[in-house]
Design a protein around this nucleic acid. Structure first.
Length: 364
DNA sequence: TCTGGGGTCCTAGGACCC
DNA sequence: TCTGGGGTCCTAGGACCC
């Protein structure tokens, strides 16, 4: 993959750029007096409500607070915390500035992964120098710090970033992957969570090195024909190395509501569903593509989730879709208190928009 | 008084068809 | 009386990510 350009050999690299404590950092930018304090951002900023932590500043993380934690538990851990409501517009605006800066970098192909992270594909002799320049540009333009992972595959670049935090740079390639990651638990891999790591352990695979050494065929009985071999590849850090800036096409839209008090009456469920349907369909209308399926998600108290899915004809109008949603609600278990209701509309895809079938699950 | 809200993709099993 | 084999579609649920 070496390419000669003007007598200088340029090598393709994947950079993974990740903003440091992004949401908390954006809040500090508009309220500088918060710098250095433990900040927790989540829900409406009220720790007595049902909500979870979106981001905690490093000062709050020192108390054991992390994203996904119930807000009231987090508040209990850090009595002096500054607790702020989530402000999507502000984070989106800051994110736009960051991504625009990345796209301005010479020769960069940018694949956005979320508000606060992106892959950047480049060809260079010196990826560290490129990364430092990129960090400086982002800081100058947005006043935000980021860490950069350098890799020869997407997976290695993504994992490398964790070793660069905060505000640093780290390189992971086929050459040092096993030295750095081999002894670590499989759960530290991007795409392996609690459940999969436990199933791997059942097969005697506990570390990344053990997963890397496993025969992909041996993983098929446990994980299926696609995911089995994919996990083995993940253990080696292998996989795609091309950053893809193809514009993203949504597969569907969903809305969820967690009720501060559990719903108990069918009429309450119907009302909530009418509202959710209206919001989901507004999103779908903006896309201009027909709805081909509905999924109703119900979380019963204390913590048990059920989904009900239905295909629907592309020709359905708003009223027919609402009727089908209410119909799905009829399958809800009567008498059980309901904590959360969600509705997802799956949309027909444009003809050429289906990408290749690499298991990705939310990321790339 | 534990548990967000927005997504993506995979798998199993039954229904159905030829 | 016994009960193919291959394929596709649909539903339900699982897992993971930011």
């Amino acid at each position: 993959m070496l390419r000669q350009t003007g007598g200088v050999s340029r090598i393709p690299w994947v950079l993974h750029v990740d903003l440091d404590q992004f949401i908390a950092a954006v809040e500090v930018l508009r309220r500088p007096e918060l710098a250095g304090k433990p900040i927790i951002v989540g829900g409406r900023g009220d720790p007595t409500e049902r909500a979870v932590v979106s981001t905690a500043s490093y000062e709050a993380r020192a108390f054991g607070v992390g994203s996904g934690m119930p807000l009231r538990i987090a508040a209990r851990k850090v009595p002096d915390a500054v607790i702020l409501p989530v402000d999507h517009e502000a984070y989106f605006a800051a994110s736009e500035g960051v991504m625009a800066t990345l796209r301005e970098q010479p020769g960069a192909t940018v694949q956005v992964l979320g508000w606060d992270e992106a892959f950047v594909g480049i060809e260079t002799q010196d990826p560290e120098a490129y990364a430092r320049q990129l960090q400086a540009s982002v800081l100058e333009r947005t006043l935000l710090h980021c860490s950069v992972g350098i890799g020869d595959t997407l997976v290695r670049a993504k994992v490398a970033t964790g070793f660069g935090k905060p505000a640093g740079i780290f390189r992971l390639t086929a050459g040092n992957w096993l030295d750095v990651m081999g002894g670590r638990p499989t759960k530290e891999l991007w795409g392996v969570g609690a459940k999969v790591s436990a199933r791997l352990a059942k097969l005697g695979i506990n570390t990344v090195a053990e997963l890397a050494a496993s025969d992909p065929q041996d993983l098929i009985p446990e994980f299926g024909p696609r995911m089995g071999p994919w996990y083995a590849e993940l253990g080696r850090g292998d996989g795609a190395s091309v950053v893809d800036d193809t514009p993203w096409v949504a597969r569907g839209h969903s809305r969820e509501t967690t009720f501060q008090r559990d719903l108990t009456e069918p009429a309450q469920v119907d009302d909530a569903l009418r509202e959710l349907t209206a919001r989901v369909l507004d999103d779908v209308v903006a896309e201009g593509r027909p709805v081909i399926g509905l999924t109703l998600k119900v979380r019963y108290a204390p913590f048990f989730t059920k989904t009900h899915a239905r295909k629907i004809p592309e020709t359905f109008d708003r009223n027919e879709i609402l009727a089908r949603a209410l119909d799905l609600a009829a399958s809800i278990e009567a008498g059980r208190p309901i904590r959360l209701l969600g509705l997802r509309a799956e949309m027909a895809m444009p003809d050429d928009a289906r990408k290749g079938h690499t298991p990705t699950r939310g990321g790339w």
